[in-house]
Design a protein around this nucleic acid. Sequence first.
RNA 1: GGAGGCUUCGCCUAGUCCGGUCUAUGGCGCCGCACUGCUAAUGCGGUUUGGGGUAACCCCCCAUCCCGGGUUCAAAUCCCGGAGCCUCCGCCA
Length: 421
Amino acid sequence: MIDLRALRDGPEAFRASQTARGGDPAAVDAALAADERRRAAVTRADALRAESNAASKAIQSASADERPAMIERAKQLKESVKAAEAEQDEADAALRAAAYAIANLVEPDAPVGGEADSVVIETVGELPSYDFAVRDHVQLGELLGAIDLERGAKVSGSRFYFLTGVGALLELALVNLAMEQAVAAGFTPVIAPAVVRPEAMEGTGFLGAHAAEVYRLEADDLYLVGTSEVALAGMHADEVLDSANLPLRYAGFSSCFRREAGSYGVDTRGIIRVHWFDKVEMFSYVPPQEAAAEHRRLLAWEKEFLTKLELPFQVLDIATGDLGSSAARKFDCEAWFPSQGRYRELTSTSNCTTFQSRRLSIRYRTDDGPAPVATLNGTLCAIARTIACLLEVHQQADGSVRVPEALRPHLAGRAVLEPVT
RNA sequence: GGAGGCUUCGCCUAGUCCGGUCUAUGGCGCCGCACUGCUAAUGCGGUUUGGGGUAACCCCCCAUCCCGGGUUCAAAUCCCGGAGCCUCCGCCA
């Protein structure tokens, strides 16, 4: 449920936010109207319940003579309570639906517009140049015996793959490097479930506009997560966190599954866009007033990791129309893919403020009682895509790949990955 | 897969058999006050959460004993369905 007090106090901000996202500003007024209706229904039902309770109590101390008439009266009250409660339930459901149709408030500084309006706020690292014809990661993966796409397709279908040999080792090395950094920064490492209940999916906002992206296990009414964000947010659902424990930071490793519906023909080559990949995700719970600062920290940790891998990248401030319903602000790090001659998204960090915590009921203690926390997430390493980028950027003329310094300790000291064929 | 036990206001817990006196007991923790060189200890008081009323406070009303239904004038308590945890058996490793 969105913050109705904020909505009542300042509907203009929500209307403006909806408009900036390319959403419907009228949804705000629909929610306000639903709120009014619900309040009226609750007031009626409360009054009837009070009357009914009093009637039942009176029966206890009534004499045998009075009883039959009083019970008759109480029966009638019971019926009207039932009717009023049905109305209340209806109004509740309507309000919920109306409120859920409103996306999170965008941060005022976020660039307004669609995908093309996202702003490059920083460029890090020098673009590499090669005095030979660059290979793409598919060719390199094959030469190194690292990626087997054909057999992936044979076993699981298109957009699945095997990581083999150094490919498998690269995944483990990246996970270790990412976890090492996260732990050093104070994150609690987590191996998170990749299968979750509907509430977790709903609460994190993944069953809204992007429901078609999600794998559902029909027989068990469970979902495969597209990111461990879902499990890491659901982890503290229905809890009141001790403010002394904030910020609470987790680095979660899990497999991620995406149907990639509607992206047929896009990125069909290689392991840049796949139905399954593993990922280390950062997730923070902080007081709302610290969310913006935490967001910058998450971005800084993402940059640190890409820098360790010696990958040139740029940072985008994502435009309002491209935020998704839960994010108030989002920064993407796009790394350079030499074979494509352009930057592609490798990591992404979102400030969801209290959008998720309201739906999942995650609060923290304040002097004024429990209040929703802010939740933020950021990719530390999306492994398949990172491997693809890594192979391409650090490739050499003979098809070998130089291993960035930071990764070597996690690859038994290897400095170069050599072709196996 | 089978059988049984369990789930109560941060944590633990009484209450459930036999419906109303539950406005849910007690302990721990926490907050406030008192006392005390300080701390500790002790004493007294407070402490579920959500919704609504109120300018605000005091306070009042409604809901809330895992969730959803049902029975009843009345449900923590009885009935049905579901979830989770635990134990044992089976199966697998």
